[in-house]
C-alpha cells in the first residue's frame, strides 16, 4: 500500500469552455489532517466532487491507496475506502437519527441490501449505531426526525454519516460552515475525536481552526494548487499571501 491515502495527478475539469480545475496535483498522506483553502470560486467543492465521484474529471488521475478511482461512481469509491460529507447538509430528513446512521453502517457490516432479518435483530448494527450516537453526542435524539434537529446537531449527523461508513479516508466539505463561535469550538473537538486515526482532507474557511488542527495546508487558487506545506510554511509563503490572503497581514485583518 502506498504511503499516500490520496494522490491526485494533473487533474482537470472543464464545464464547456470554462476550465474550473486546471491541473491539480495533491497528496494526502496516510493519517494526516490536511486542510484545503482558497478563495471563493477557486474550485474546492468541484475538486471534492471529482474525488468523491459526483463529477467525472475531464482528464488526470486520482489514486486512492494507489488504486485509480477517477470517474468511478460514488458507491465504488466508498467501497474503496473514501467517504465524504457535504457543505450543504445532506442527510435523510424524514428518517430518525438512528435510521440515518443505520443506513450508513449497513454496507461496512456486510448487510447491504439484505431482507433476511429485521434491523432490530442485527446486533452488530445496533451496537455500532449506539457507539456512533454516543460519539456524536446524539444519543438523546436517536428517535427524533433528522429535520427536527438543531443546525449543529444536523451538522454532527452529516459528519456521522461520513464517518459511519467506515472509510479510512475522509473528505469534509466545510463541516463548520454557518456555525457560531462557540458551536465551532465544539464541532472542531468532535471532528478531531471521530476522525482519530484516519486520513482527513477538509475544506475550511476559518483560519483559526485550520492553523489549530491541520498538519498540512494546500492552497487552491483558480483551479491550481499554488502551495502545500505546514501551517507555518503557508503563513510565510509570499505567493499565498499575495494570491489568497491579499495582504501580508490578512490573518489579523480577518
Amino acid at each position: 500500500m502506498s504511503a499516500n491515502a490520496i494522490e491526485i495527478r494533473d487533474l482537470r475539469k472543464s464545464f464547456g469552455p470554462v476550465d474550473i480545475i486546471r491541473g491539480v496535483n495533491l497528496e494526502l498522506r496516510a493519517g494526516e489532517r490536511h486542510a484545503l483553502i482558497g478563495p471563493n470560486g477557486a474550485g474546492k467543492s468541484t475538486l471534492f466532487h471529482l474525488i468523491s465521484g459526483r463529477l467525472r474529471p475531464t482528464s488526470g488521475k486520482i489514486l486512492l491507496h494507489g488504486q485509480e478511482i477517477q470517474g468511478k461512481p460514488p458507491a465504488r469509491i466508498v467501497h474503496a475506502g473514501l467517504s465524504r460529507s457535504f457543505q450543504i447538509t445532506n442527510i435523510f430528513p424524514e428518517m430518525t437519527v438512528l435510521e440515518n446512521l443505520r443506513c450508513a453502517v449497513l454496507w461496512k457490516l456486510g448487510h447491504r441490501y439484505s431482507v433476511l432479518r429485521p434491523l432490530g435483530r442485527l446486533r452488530d448494527v445496533e451496537a455500532e449505531c449506539t457507539r456512533l450516537l454516543e460519539e456524536l453526542r446524539l444519543t438523546h435524539r436517536r428517535t427524533s426526525r433528522a429535520d427536527s434537529l438543531s443546525y449543529p446537531e444536523q451538522r454532527a449527523l452529516e459528519l456521522g454519516l461520513a464517518v459511519a461508513s467506515g472509510a479510512d479516508t475522509l473528505l469534509l466539505d466545510e463541516p463548520m460552515a454557518g456555525m457560531s463561535h462557540s458551536e465551532t469550538a465544539a464541532a472542531l473537538e468532535l471532528i478531531m475525536a471521530v476522525t482519530e486515526g484516519r486520513s482527513l482532507l477538509m475544506v475550511e474557511h476559518d483560519m483559526g481552526v485550520i492553523f489549530e488542527m491541520a498538519d498540512r495546508i494546500s492552497v487552491l487558487v483558480y483551479g491550481e494548487v499554488i502551495a502545500t506545506g505546514t501551517p507555518e510554511e503557508i503563513r510565510a509563503n509570499p505567493a499565498v499571501q499575495e494570491a489568497y490572503l491579499g495582504t501580508p497581514n490578512a490573518e489579523e485583518a480577518a
Binding site: 461512481p73 460514488p74 458507491a75 445532506n90 442527510i91 435523510f92 443506513c103 449497513l106 441490501y113
Partner: peptide, 11 residues
C-alpha cells in the same frame, strides 16, 4: 428522502 446521499454511503 435523498437518493444521492445513498450513493455516497456505498449503495
Amino acid at each position: 428522502d435523498n437518493a444521492e446521499r445513498v450513493e455516497f454511503l456505498g449503495f
